[in-house]
C-alpha cells in the first residue's frame, strides 16, 4: 500500500488548488453527461418539442386559434410561432438550470450525501457550489443550442417562425440567462429538503413558467387591467423567467420585447441575488 510521507513543501497555493479542483469538478460533470448523452438530449428536447408540436403543428391543423386572430390565414399562427420559439428556448434554459443544479444538489445533500465528500476538496466551499452553477449554465447554453433549431423546424405547413438572430445579444444574453437560472437552481436546491423537492414544481416552477412570458409578449398583457391598473403586467415583472424570455425574443427575433436596457441589468441583479443567496444557503448546510 501507499506510504504517506508528509511533505508540507508539496503544498499548493490555494489559488492553484482551487483552479484544478474547479476543472476536475467540471470534468466530472461532463463525464456524467457524456455517459447519458442520449438521456440529456431527450430530457432537453422533449418539452420544447411537445410545445411546438401542439401549438405550432396540431393547433393550426385542427383550426384551433392561438394567434389572437386577425390578418391573413397563417399569419396569426406565424406571429405566434415567432413569439413561442423564443419562449421555448427561454424555458429550456430555465429547466436545464433547475434540473442540473436544483435536483442534482437536493439529491446530493439528501439521498446520496455525496456533497460531504465533495466539500473535502482542497478548495473553498463556495467554489463547489459555484461549479454547479457554472456547469448548469453550460448545460443551459447547450440546450439553447439544441432547442432553437427544433423549435424553428417543428410546425405545420404555412406556419413560419420569423427567426432573426442578433448575434451580439445572443452571445451575451444566453450565457447571462443561463447563469441566472443556474443560480436560481442553486437557491432552490439548497432551500428545499429532498423530500419536498416535488413541491418546488407546484409552487415555483409552474407559476414561473406560465407567468413568465413563454407564450406571449409582455407588452401584449396590457389589456389585462382593473380600473386602469395593468395588474398582470406589473406582477409578472418579479418573475425572472420573463426577462429571460423577452431577452430571447431580442436575441432571436424582431418582435417587440422589454427594452434591453432593462433586461441586462435586471438579469444581472437576479444572477447576483440568487448566487449570493444560494452560496449562503450552501455554506450553512455544509458547515456547522
Amino acid at each position: 500500500m501507499k506510504p504517506s510521507p508528509i511533505s508540507l513543501s508539496s503544498q499548493r497555493s490555494t489559488w492553484s488548488a482551487g483552479r484544478s479542483a474547479l476543472v476536475a469538478l467540471l470534468l466530472r460533470d461532463f463525464t456524467v453527461i457524456k455517459k447519458d448523452i442520449k438521456l440529456f438530449f431527450l430530457r432537453t428536447v422533449i418539452q420544447p418539442f411537445l410545445l411546438c408540436f401542439v401549438f405550432l403543428y396540431v393547433f393550426p391543423k385542427i383550426g384551433q386559434s392561438v394567434g389572437g386572430g386577425g390578418g391573413s390565414p397563417g399569419a396569426a399562427e406565424s406571429d405566434f410561432a415567432t413569439v413561442l420559439v423564443a419562449g421555448v428556448v427561454g424555458i429550456s434554459v430555465m429547466f436545464q438550470g433547475l434540473q442540473s443544479v436544483a435536483l442534482q444538489m437536493s439529491q446530493e445533500f439528501g439521498f446520496t450525501r455525496e456533497i460531504e465528500d465533495r466539500v473535502q476538496a482542497p478548495c473553498p466551499i463556495w467554489l463547489v457550489a459555484l461549479e454547479k452553477v457554472v456547469s448548469g449554465a453550460l448545460q443551459g447554453m447547450l440546450s439553447a443550442l439544441i432547442v432553437l433549431p427544433i423549435a424553428a423546424l417543428v410546425h405545420a405547413n404555412g406556419v413560419h417562425a420569423a427567426i432573426h438572430i442578433h448575434w451580439l445579444v445572443m452571445l451575451t444574453l444566453v450565457p447571462l440567462a443561463a447563469l441566472a437560472m443556474g443560480s436560481l437552481g442553486l437557491v432552490i436546491g439548497t432551500s428545499f429538503e429532498p423530500r419536498n423537492i416535488g413541491l418546488m414544481f407546484g409552487f415555483i416552477v409552474l407559476p414561473i413558467t406560465f407567468l413568465g412570458g413563454t407564450y406571449y409578449q409582455w407588452n401584449r398583457l396590457a389589456p389585462v387591467q382593473i380600473g386602469g391598473w395593468h395588474w398582470l403586467q406589473t406582477i409578472v415583472l418579479v418573475n425572472p423567467l420573463l426577462y429571460v424570455n423577452e431577452g430571447m425574443r431580442a436575441a432571436f427575433t424582431d418582435v417587440a420585447h422589454i427594452h434591453l436596457y432593462l433586461i441586462y441589468p435586471v438579469l444581472l441583479v437576479f444572477f447576483a441575488g440568487f448566487l449570493s443567496l444560494g452560496l449562503r444557503n450552501f455554506r450553512r448546510r455544509v458547515l456547522s
Binding site: R12, S16, A21, A24, L27, R28, T31, A121, P122
Partner: peptide, 11 residues
C-alpha cells in the same frame, strides 16, 4: 472513476 476524479480534484 470515483478514484480517478478524486485524484484530479486534488490536483
Amino acid at each position: 472513476e470515483n478514484l480517478y476524479f478524486h485524484g484530479r480534484l486534488f490536483g
